[in-house]
Amino acid sequence: MTDVFRALDDETRRLILDELAARDGQTLFEICTTLTMRHGVGSTRQAISQHLAVLEDAGLVTTERRGRTKLHHFDPTPLDAVARRWPTTGKADP
């Protein structure tokens, strides 16, 4: 299991989560296209695939098959642990 902090310690991986948060359920091709065209990320498809593997290992990305195509989804659940550790509100944790 990759540590969530290590998974987030990379600009490209944060951009991937931004794009999946904006539109959930994307193929590798779509992620690569938007990273290149919107963010000027010049990484290879293989490199993006490895970034996705790190995010998946950290539980921040899940994959599912729709037909013969693999789609990637953003799962913010691991971020709850961060918010619980350092609550952003003055109120006590429930």
């Binding site: 539109r23 193929t27 779509e30 296209t33 938007t34 065209m37 195509t69």
Partner: peptide
């Protein structure tokens, strides 16, 4: 028709991907 990518603005063009 099924699309794996809906219409997406990528800056210089709009693209979509269908099966």
């Amino acid at each position: 028709v099924t699309f794996t990518q809906p219409p997406t603005d990528i800056g210089p063009a709009v693209v979509a991907v269908l099966d």
